[in-house]
Design a protein around this nucleic acid. Structure first.
Length: 886
RNA sequence: GCGAGCGUGGCGGAAUUGGCAGACGCGCUGGAUUUAGGAUCCAGUGGACACAGUCCGUGUGGGUUCGAGUCCCUCCGCUCGCACCA
């Protein structure tokens, strides 16, 4: 027998111990050996492929971008999912637990540019390495369902969906404003633009530009996406609320202001039409189509300069809180249709072209932003709403009055309340044909064209005679050309646009020479429907099998990071509804229960002037000497999200090498409940490693008689320690079953098992013992089963040491024996005026009077009751009795 | 500014429906074992005091209740998200 581990450190000195262990057939806990053995067994027996029997259970974790290496965030995400998968499999469900690769997109393209290695070659290598790491962590995936979005057999279905959605008018072409770098001559993602309008490759002067793009009409589902949030009762409240805000339904009115000296009108959207008699100017977004047309000759120069200036600044920065409110008068004026008043038309940086109508009516008396702008440019402020309590607004106002109130100086609407006025004034606008009550949404359509190489080609052919013609279904997929045929530099627009062999084609309708679309799709398209592809990953006649969808969908549990709260999960929901309306599905929502796990944080050391320094180096030094290597100032310590740039990351593979996969898994599950942030603490890991060793030691200490002993069927004949052990075992089983199955609190489940092990040690199970072998065997087997979702390799080892049949991973989760859970006495608390005065062991069947007698007989209770009158007795069965005395 | 969430020992956390605050783990203290260290095992560990017990204690101040970490209100602090949204 191989002896390894800690006892090997000083082989010469430990020979006595060594021999004793040899004779007792004891090994110390060696996770590396145990884990590799069981991983091989699982692999050989395809232990986690579904067998088609039992209630279906679909557990899905957000699939990763295959960077090649797992990080602690992945470990946490996938371990949580794995507990669900393994637990529900043991509960007898037919578990679907697949994994795949979100393998198109910008990171891979950038890596390809840098390394000059084709992503087609790099991606499978990364996938292979990451998959090995996942197997080393003991994750129970059904690898026969693996998918990778970079493969044409996956992305052809993106193209197929595109064509179907185009037929349904859920895809259309539009102009959109994007970040543009003149240096690279290309479009940039927000993340590629740094703060000061510098691009990621160092060019200054990033600006914006309007380009044509394809968009999904997600807004036509806005109402349903909002309403169905109510169905997501098993989603975190936080995520639902974020989605609600993002969809952003607001009720208001659309009002037309005719331009003076022109037949054009400025259309504004407002939620406060009740304030319109106080409107003293109108403001357009710089990108508003009317901007160019209406500027008068003397103002044209100023307007053009202003538009140019704002365009050079990224929209986020321009509209940030505290950014100065800039604007310029166009020279034009417009007529307020309610008052007939003529007001000036301005252009300002804070008005957004793509929200509402891109134009606002400004009421400085009742909107703080308008108030500041009017004050700065000396525009009149005209109050028309006064507080409902009849008080007057201060004159002059020092800030806007933004509450609802009562209208004054508002013609026939004077005297109405704001709420009444909004209704009546919208109706007035419709009657007179210059506006209407309307609903406005924050949600905008999903533009998905990307001027990139490493994405799904958009299957469209542009013909001079027939316009944009979709590629016929039988010609799909449009495959990405080989990497070595293109020149990938990150400059000069869409890479496919430089490859005539790709874009030169014939019109599917008339056969004339035509040009392919050279843009590719956003990778959010891939992840919008991947959950359905897992159902039938190899099907080549449809994106997924509809029968399988009926069986498996919706996904029962979806686990991932809260950073995807809005975009991914909204697109995911949208696509599900779109698939339903294509007749492919009958569900409205993709996921029943969503679990968003917290970040993995760790201490990070930083110097205010020299940035971050590696944690490992700093921890190696004594506490007082952790100073900046450059300036020798003491370094600050803060708990921050693990990241490369902060040098505070922990490599999961080195953890597994040192402690094993089981300890690593136990640690991430024990340190915090799934939805909370987890703070990395190297000392705590030791505690979990100790727990694993203690379990192993108990199993090792049992002799051969245990392996074949007959299991107890009831409490009959069990006394003393035997009965105590069996009761503790079944109580733990009931607790773990509830914590995992109902509450999804894995940390408390592990704590319960720790308590059980402590009980085992109290009864000397770790030293061998004279206890009933059947009780000991049951303890071993049941512990192995409870442990199986958390520390699956150790669980298999314990199962096998206890003479369990087959794999514990495929065993049936045990039921606690009700007889073992039964208690004859229970602990009852006695309070006097709400303060704890005694704890009593009372028979479970004792009634109120009996308990009253026992309680009053207690010395300490009697002491506090002496000379007092009991005014009231509160009796909570099974918990406490409280005497209210005076 | 808006929205959401969170404040419990030296630390991570537990307390399921309003009913024993601090389970479990880390750390620390003491003991056993050991030539020693490590490892392991056992015991203790919220604070104070007149120490078999009592009093105080879940960010602050108030309220509801026989009883509040839990429910309501006020203030303070922290974290995350965001879009000056008309």
């Amino acid at each position: 027998m191989v002896i390894r581990g800690r006892s090997d450190r000083l082989p010469g000195r430990t020979s006595v111990c060594y021999l004793r262990r040899m004779t007792n057939q004891h090994r110390s806990y060696d996770p590396q050996d145990i884990e590799k053995r069981w991983q091989a067994k699982w692999r050989e027996s395809k232990a986690f492929a579904g067998d088609g029997s039992g209630e279906p259970f679909y557990i899905l974790e957000m699939f990763p971008y295959p960077s090649g290496n797992l990080h602690m965030g992945h470990v946490r995400n996938y371990t949580i999912g794995d507990v669900f998968a393994r637990f529900h499999k043991m509960q007898g469900r037919d578990v679907l637990h697949p994994m795949g690769w979100d393998s198109l997109g910008l990171p891979a393209e950038n890596q390809a540019i840098k390394e000059k290695i084709a992503p087609q070659i790099r991606t499978p290598k990364n996938i292979k390495q990451m998959k090995e790491q996942m197997e080393r962590l003991g994750l129970a995936y059904d690898w026969s369902r693996e998918i990778a979005t970079y493969r044409p057999d996956y992305y052809r279905w993106n193209q197929w969906f595109f064509v179907k959605l185009l037929e349904k008018d859920l895809v259309y072409r539009r102009q959109n404003t994007v970040n543009w770098c003149p240096g690279c001559n290309t479009v940039l993602a927000n993340e590629q633009v740094l703060d000061d309008a510098t691009c990621w490759r160092g060019h200054k002067g990033v600006t914006t530009r309007s380009i044509p793009e394809w968009a999904f009409r997600i807004t036509s589902y806005a109402e349903e996406l909002l309403a169905d949030l109510d169905k997501l009762s098993a989603w975190p409240e936080r995520i639902v609320s974020q989605q609600r805000h993002w969809i952003g339904k607001s009720f208001g009115a659309r009002v037309e202001f005719p331009l003076q000296g022109s037949d054009k009108k400025v259309e504004v959207f407002t939620t406060r039409v009740d304030t319109i008699f106080g409107c003293t100017y109108v403001v357009l977004a710089p990108e508003h189509p009317l901007t160019d047309l209406i500027a008068t000759d003397e103002q044209r120069g100023a307007v053009e300069a202003f538009v140019e200036k704002t365009r050079a600044i990224d929209a986020i920065e321009r509209t940030a809180e505290g950014a100065p409110k800039e604007g310029v008068f166009t020279g034009a004026t417009a007529k307020n249709p309610y008052t007939g008043e003529v007001v000036p038309v301005w252009i300002a940086n804070f008005v957004l072209a793509d929200y509402g109508t891109g134009a606002v009516m400004s009421v400085p008396a009742h909107d703080q932003r308008d108030f500041e702008f009017a004050s700065k440019f000396d525009i009149p402020i005209k109050p028309v709403i006064h507080p409902s309590d009849g008080t007057d607004l201060p004159s002059p106002q020092c800030e806007a009055f933004t509450d609802d109130g009562v209208l004054r100086d508002s013609g026939e609407f004077s005297g109405l309340t704001s709420a009444d006025a909004r209704e009546k004034m919208s109706a007035f606008a419709s009657t007179n044909g210059f506006g209407e009550a309307t609903v406005n949404w924050h949600l905008r359509d999903w533009g998905f064209s990307r001027q990139r190489y490493w994405g799904t080609p958009i299957p469209i052919i542009y013909c001079d005679d027939h316009g944009a013609v979709p590629v016929p279904e039988e010609d799909l997929p449009v495959v990405l050309p080989d990497f070595d045929t293109i020149e990938l530099t990150g400059e000069g627009g869409a890479p496919l646009g430089k490859l005539p062999s790709f874009y030169q084609t014939k019109c599917p309708t008339c056969g004339k020479t035509a040009r392919r679309e050279v843009d590719t799709m956003d990778t959010f398209v891939d992840s919008a429907w991947y959950f359905a592809r897992f159902l039938s990953p190899e099907l080549d006649t449809a994106p997924f099998d509809q029968e399988a969808a009926k069986r498996w969908l919706p996904v029962d549990v979806y686990v991932g990071g809260p950073e995807h709260a809005v975009m991914h999960l909204l697109y995911f929901r949208f696509w599900t509804k779109a698939m339903r309306d294509l007749g492919l599905l009958s569900i409205d929502e993709p996921v029943t229960r969503l679990i968003t796990q917290g970040m993995v944080n760790a201490a990070a050391f930083s110097c205010p002037s020299h940035g971050y320094f590696p944690v490992s180096e700093m921890l190696a030094k004594p506490e007082g000497e952790r100073n900046c290597p450059k300036c020798n100032e003491p370094l600050g310590v803060a708990i921050e999200k693990m990241s490369k740039s902060k040098y505070n990351g922990v490599d999961p593979m080195s953890l597994i090498e040192r402690y094993g996969a089981d300890t690593t898994r136990l640690y991430v599950l024990f340190a915090a409940p799934p939805e909370k942030d987890l703070e990395w603490n190297p000392d705590s890991v030791e505690g979990l490693s100790r727990f694993a060793s203690r379990i192993f030691r108990v199993a090792q200490a049992q002799g051969d008689e245990v392996r074949t002993a007959e299991l107890p069927k009831s409490m009959a004949g069990l006394k003393g320690a035997d009965a105590e052990i069996r009761r503790a075992l079944h109580r733990t089983l009931a607790k773990v079953t509830h914590e995992v199955g109902v509450r999804n609190h894995f940390n408390t489940a592990i704590a319960a098992m720790m308590e059980l092990i402590n009980t085992f040690y109290e009864r000397k199970l770790h030293e061998g013992s004279a206890l009933n072998p059947g009780v000991r065997r049951e303890a071993l087997l049941t512990l192995a089963q409870m442990l199986a979702p958390f520390a699956p390799h150790l669980a298999e080892e314990i199962w096998s040491l206890g003479g369990g049949e087959g794999l514990v991973a495929q065993s049936r989760w045990p039921e606690p024996d009700p007889e073992a859970l039964e208690r004859r006495t229970l602990n009852l608390v006695v309070q006097i005026n709400g303060k704890l005065r005694a704890q009593l062991e009372v028979p479970v069947d004792a009634d109120e009077d009996a308990i009253d007698a026992i309680a009053q007989a207690d010395e300490n209770v009697a002491k506090f009751l002496e000379g007092k009158i009991i005014r009231k007795r509160v009796f909570v069965p099974g918990r406490l009795v409280n005497y209210v005395v005076g």
